[in-house]
Design a binder for these strands. Sequence first.
DNA 1: CGGTCAAGTGGAACCGCTCCCAAGGGCGGT
DNA 2: ACCGCCCTTGGGAGCGGTTCCACTTGACCG
Lengths: 345, 345
Amino acid sequence: MSSTAQRRPGAHRPTLEEVAVLAGVGRGTVSRVVNGSPRVSDRTRAVVEQAVAELGYVPNRAARTLVTSRADAIALVVPETETRLFSEPYFADIISGVCAELADSELQLLLVLVRDQRERDRLSAYLRAQRVDGVLLVAVHRDDPLPGTLEELRIPVVLAGRRADHEPLSYVAADNLGGARAAVRHLLAGGRERIATITGPLDMEVAEARLAGYRAALAEAGRAGSDDLVGLADFTEQGGRAAMRELLDRVPDLDAVFCASDVLAAGALQVLRAAGRRVPEDVALVGFDDSIVARHTDPPLTSVRQPTAELGRTMVRLLLDEIAEPGGPRHQLVLGTELVVRDSG
Amino acid sequence: MSSTAQRRPGAHRPTLEEVAVLAGVGRGTVSRVVNGSPRVSDRTRAVVEQAVAELGYVPNRAARTLVTSRADAIALVVPETETRLFSEPYFADIISGVCAELADSELQLLLVLVRDQRERDRLSAYLRAQRVDGVLLVAVHRDDPLPGTLEELRIPVVLAGRRADHEPLSYVAADNLGGARAAVRHLLAGGRERIATITGPLDMEVAEARLAGYRAALAEAGRAGSDDLVGLADFTEQGGRAAMRELLDRVPDLDAVFCASDVLAAGALQVLRAAGRRVPEDVALVGFDDSIVARHTDPPLTSVRQPTAELGRTMVRLLLDEIAEPGGPRHQLVLGTELVVRDSG
DNA sequence: CGGTCAAGTGGAACCGCTCCCAAGGGCGGT
DNA sequence: ACCGCCCTTGGGAGCGGTTCCACTTGACCG
């Protein structure tokens, strides 16, 4: 039973021990070389590296994790209620940014959708089983219990967006208020008089902030925004339609609508058209997110773009910091937004 | 230097051993209870379960993985070149389906974007490090080396779509040929005479199959599809525009275009409009994917819907099969598609 | 009533790695 | 020539599970 070439690819994976034997050194030495410790002579290092290459050795992560209790992985957690996110560049860009930033580390990315209490529990179990070093949390609602749980478990977290003005955890957010204000200023500059808004669900700080931006722009122009001009919706197209209908009922003479998302705007647009209003002649329309729909509606939507990939990258950077220095200071960043003017207003 | 640091609440996770002590049984017994082995008396089981609950015990996955060499995780691998996927419901639905199916297992989902050779190598290393039990592969091009690598490593794989007609690996695909044929039949039924097509990159079987469906429909109607009527593009909007321009040059009297994707169709639509053609009066337009753009163009696009979430679910099911029975038979499934008629043709 | 056997249980061995400690060797200083 | 020190190195002791084997026990059988 000679230990011959288990050379069949895929069958046997060489262990550190085998590398040590081949290189004629001890296990500790191989470990040091593999992990780039400086306490190894150049000659030995070369020999070991040769052996590693020859055997195609790759360290077994489970074994390493077991002893270091680092998982070398982070999780991106998304409430499934937000699956809509997936169909927008927002999410794609976040992922893209996250992966880009992760590429230089040895970390892996776990994707976790949480759709109900059961899955929430499952997630807790994961975390408790020490499967990840940190968590990226997207689209948190104000009363989401998850951030609290994570904090209790002492697991580093970074949020995309914040739960409220005053957010204790680390987060990276887009300047929603500023973006919304810019959008409404643009409408004002275009001479619009009766500017309405359709908001997202106000238990999300994003929606709240965009509404605040709308109000701020009106206020600085010396106009009191009447509540009649505010239509409430969730972030769906259907919600946009319903809200637009109500607004038209309540304020038939409105001449502009700032929508808290492009999808909302798309819904609103349908209703406006059905009501015989021309966009932008009769009613100007501005969205938010600069998502793919914005470019394809007729007319294309003026919208607010967020630096989403950058947001993903930054989140990872912050998370790595927190992982490296647990209990360190929290980091909170707000990234700028940009108005993209198209034909809708 | 006393080993303090570990007493922070939330820091220390109870081990199997501690549960055993509390329950007054051996480690093996606890393990059996935790893993649902039948070889435990009801009384003992109850005692152990009590102890588990009391301590909030959750098995350490790394330790388990180390000895069982099951990773309890699968990877979803996406070539980054296909990030466009992310902005379409296609991908969102795949993920959603995958997660839904995974929810009942103990498996986790790793998301891996591969954007260049370096990351491809990194992926190989992951796989070799036994971090996953299987791989879901999306958007494979014909000459993609990844499937081959995986096969060599003896890692179970299921593809979304296939590389060619004759695909050795397991896959789940939509009936692209059938869908395309249905789309073109619909155009024929509408009385269209000069039906063109804009294809995706022909090194992908999806694109090829959709083109084949187009040809099949023409053939069965007794019309030889001239090559003049075929415009080549990648799956981008820009590609759609370019291809549409060429087609108009070559075949000014075309009265319908079947596009291999909605995004292509959206591009084509812009060019048609710019050229003064009315859709659908002068030129009928049909897309594929029933993506979010399809509903928002003006007019909304007739398109072919694929059962994408189902596709994700099925992929997982097949993969679990392969994992359970390595070296077992390959499974290959084709799921039906459905024509969604809107105003564009 | 001894013998057979299945069920239930405890515990050792081991998975592959990191970490630490002790030991070997080289070298400058005295 | 000897001592002390630093640089390298080998290898033991776990990390927290699973698995297998051996042992105890009580039931059942002839």
